[in-house]
Amino acid sequence: MTIASGTVREAAIAAPPPAPAATSPARPRKRRQLTRNRWGYAYVAPFFLVFAAFSLYPFMYTAWVSLHETSLSNINGGTWVGLDNYRNLLQSEFFWNAARNTLTIGILATVPQLCMALGLAHLLNYKLRGRTFFRTVMLMPYATSIAAATLVFSQLFGREYGLINTMLEAVGLQAIDWEAGTVSSQVAIAVIVTWRWTGYNALIYLAAMQSIPGELYEAAEIDGASKWKQFLHVTIPSLRPTILFTIVVSTIGAVQLFGEPLLFAGNGTTSGGSSGQYQTLGLLMYQQGWSNFHIGQAATTAWAMFMIILVIVGVNAVIGRLRARADR
């Protein structure tokens, strides 16, 4: 609002006084703004062209495919089935299983990940020796390929000779068949995701922390706040928008989780374990389209994932808006 009205006022100052508009005054102003801003439009145009070609079109095409009964080899020639695929999906126990797995793995991965990232960022915000080194190290998992990382982790979590089981046995605990159990496999996958993304989120938090004025901490210190209370009452509230942002990004990532569960067993099967105990929505979609050759059904699952993300982002936006309003 303010920006728009500012522009109009500026335009009125910058442009020579417009000839008195005999007809509707609104129309020429609109057109004048368009021409005034044409370079702006020209500069953002490439993004929208690329967006249209690689996002919007596949998007609509997926929607269209999801309304057909067809396979990948015959993608343009399937039979129209309307919303049948959607009905099937909602009645499919595989879908609900995958949805539940996605949710639990998502929570297991996202919550500890963001908490640890916050703690790490707080520590790195102190004037440590070798700060740059730690920051680089933290970003390394992010730079590692999922395949390589998952391979290493699946060996760590191996049943017979895995390092983790060896250690468990060394302290007198029982070895765990990580891959076979529902909880254990999901925990293991959550560990891989957490390992990969904690540093990335920590750096985002760190950047936000460094923009908090030091005077606030000094004021809190004089007010008698311990380091922990300072973290609670100064750091966290200042980071609130950043935290919301990382929650959204991590949640989107969690809904789309694919590589880690695909490679966890070491053989790249899409079933997500012998009883689908760690099959995520991403895996299910791949299984439907590429193992079972129902690309229409896979497109439906893809759309369902997109809707879930939309809902989550929407809820977050509403929370953010409400908080911002409360802050005013």
Partner: peptide
């Protein structure tokens, strides 16, 4: 002691 800072250092939230 209590201190008044140049930029006030009020807690924004």
């Amino acid at each position: 002691i209590a201190m008044v800072f140049q930029n006030y250092a009020l807690y924004p939230h």
